[in-house]
């Protein structure tokens, strides 16, 4: 079975949650749990260049986290989404709601 790999790292004082693999109906709850844990610590960047698919359930997790971050005065950004992740964001019709960055330097 294809696994979702999620790891955390600190880069220049920023918490980066690196996600690789499919975010689908099977894996989205694991993604939600790890994203919630990360956002509880502060602002987070989700690195998505190795995401192989992104379902509406996964997008819902990100949108909920964005709402929470906004309410809590924290930041949440999406770093280098893969082609399929970008297409998934576009297909919601809410692309402008997703703060996509191409480099951590964009946060400066």
């Amino acid at each position: 079975m294809t696994q979702l790999d999620i790891s955390e790292r600190q880069e220049g004082g920023i918490l980066v949650l690196s996600v690789a693999g499919p975010i689908n109906s099977y894996t989205f709850s694991e993604f939600q749990e790890k994203l919630d844990r990360a956002t509880a610590k502060g602002s987070v960047v989700i690195e998505m260049e190795k995401v192989t698919t992104l379902s509406s359930a996964g997008i819902g997790v990100i949108m909920a986290a964005l709402d929470d971050a906004e309410t809590g005065g924290k930041g949440l950004s999406i770093l280098r989404p893969s082609e399929i992740a970008r297409l998934a964001f576009e297909s919601t019709g809410f692309i402008e709601r997703f703060p996509v960055i191409s480099s951590l330097k964009d946060l400066a």
């Binding site: 379902s55 509406s56 359930a57 997008i59 819902g60 949108m63 909920a64 297909s91 919601t92 019709g93």
Partner: peptide
């Protein structure tokens, strides 16, 4: 914490 109808919109 889920969207209803988002999948069909996509």
């Amino acid at each position: 914490r889920r969207w209803h109808g988002m999948g069909l919109r996509m």
